[in-house]
Amino acid sequence: MDRIPILKLGNALLVTIQVDMHDRLATALQEDLTEKIVSARARGVLIDISALEIVDSFIGRMLDHIAAISRMLDAETVVVGMRPAVAITLVELGLSLSGVKTALNVERGMELIKRRLDETEVADGDDDE
């Protein structure tokens, strides 16, 4: 069975979802990510869904679960790049993904994770803006 690749970027993991996922693939991704967060000692997970044309309740739930699981494993999940039409539809569907952090693109998502690490790991010197 094909699987969605998970890349390591510093202390974060990056998943780019580019296919119209069937449900088993989504479940497999959830399992793979959980493993990888621990084995790679990741502190953040970026899920890029900018290529996804729809997010239904199944995928929405998967994102929620990944966020909840990673939080327990001390990693922050950020879902990035959700398209406007997808966002409007999800809201209409009744899913707010309130446990999931979001960002406009991978770069912003990465900043969000870094900022969080800076906050928790305290005093690493001041960065200039």
Partner: peptide, 17 residues
């Protein structure tokens, strides 16, 4: 429209599942 397409495709996904 794109939004309407997305809505009906999502509804189809929910109902088919």
């Amino acid at each position: 429209s794109l939004v309407d397409q997305t809505k009906i495709v999502t509804a189809a996904s929910e109902l088919a599942r």
